[in-house]
Amino acid sequence: MEWRDEGIVLAARPHGETSVILEMFTRAHGRHLGVVHGGVSRKKSPMLQPGNQLDAVWRARLESHMGGWTVELKRSRAAGILSDPLRLAALTSACSMASFALPEREAMEDFQTRTEDLCDAIVDGKGWITDYVYWEMALLEVTGFRLDLSACAVSGGANDLAYVSPRTGRAVSRSGAGEWASKLLKLPDILLGGAPSIEGAVAALEVTGFFLENRLAPSLGNRPVPPARQRLLAALKSEV
């Protein structure tokens, strides 16, 4: 078995004394793992950092085997933002969340393209905070936990939306909430197309975080949401 693809490094974990297990989010083959022999070397280790773009060949005797990678660096993203803790936290969080949430070996070309675009935006430093918020919304959608913020779950109207139901993930208007308002999640303006701000992004990530922790994580065997996401949220709060 052999194929060639391009993708983003999600993680690289030690394997034996000199090798690593490289996890990539590839364009045509989804989240995929394989061994990189000599991956801890000075030559190879820098290219295997989360967020980097690689051209890769995967080979295995059988499709069911883990197989091995031969890789070439296409774009080094992590190295360019080492001096910016906030953007580095965002890049690390995106890679960690993709590794945590996405099924293995399932092609997701649209979401993979969106993830590459997010990583590029983080490195370029333009509009990435809003992009990250909507990327998490998309992550919930591709994993089966879409938030429907198009209309009120009670009245069906699209006016004065102010809350999100923690049970259904649907928007609720002020009038539709009634006496249940205190039990609903507040709907940040940024999720309705409002002006971007760090405060709005923090509020939005607290909403998506609720569903990541209380809906997605239980579906994955109650594995904890990666700490990298909490570090990003803490870094954003420190900027407010």
Rank of each mutant, 00 (worst) to 15 (best):
M108D: 04
M108R: 14
M108H: 13
M108E: 07
M108A: 06
E109N: 02
E109P: 10
D110E: 08
F111W: 10
F111G: 03
F111N: 06
Q112P: 00
T113M: 08
R114T: 02
R114Q: 08
T115R: 02
E116N: 01
E116K: 02
D117H: 04
L118M: 01
L118G: 10
C119P: 00
D120W: 05
D120Q: 06
D120H: 08
A121H: 02
A121W: 05
A121I: 02
I122F: 02
I122K: 06
I122L: 04
V123L: 12
G125V: 02
G127H: 04
G127I: 12
W128S: 03
W128M: 02
W128A: 01
T130C: 00
T130A: 01
T130D: 03
T130F: 02
T130Y: 00
T130K: 03
D131I: 00
Y132D: 05
E136F: 00
E136A: 01
M137Q: 07
A138M: 04
A138F: 03
L140R: 05
L140D: 01
E141Q: 13
E141S: 14
V142H: 09
G144Y: 04
G144P: 03
F145W: 11
F145I: 04
R146M: 00
L147V: 02
D148L: 11
L149V: 15
S150F: 12
A151P: 03
A151I: 06
C152G: 02
C152S: 09
C152K: 01
A153K: 11
A153Y: 03
V154I: 14
G156E: 04
G156P: 07
G156I: 11
G157A: 15
G157N: 15
G157Q: 15
G157R: 15
A158S: 15
N159F: 15
N159Q: 15
N159S: 15
D160G: 02
D160Q: 11
D160M: 01
D160Y: 05
D160N: 14
D160E: 07
L161I: 05
L161V: 10
L161Q: 10
L161S: 10
L161Y: 13
A162H: 05
V164Y: 13
S165R: 12
P166I: 04
R167M: 02
T168Q: 12
G169I: 01
R170I: 00
R170M: 08
R170A: 06
A171D: 09
A171N: 13
S173C: 11
S173H: 13
R174A: 13
S175T: 04
A177L: 05
G178K: 15
G178V: 14
G178M: 14
E179C: 03
E179N: 09
E179S: 10
A181Y: 06
A181C: 11
A181E: 12
K183A: 14
K183D: 11
L184I: 14
L184P: 12
L185H: 09
L185C: 08
K186Q: 12
L187D: 03
P188F: 08
D189R: 15
I190H: 10
L191Y: 12
L191F: 11
L191D: 12
L191V: 08
L192D: 08
L192C: 06
G193V: 03
G193M: 14
G193D: 05
P196D: 10
I198T: 10
I198C: 13
I198V: 15
E199I: 07
E199T: 15
E199Y: 11
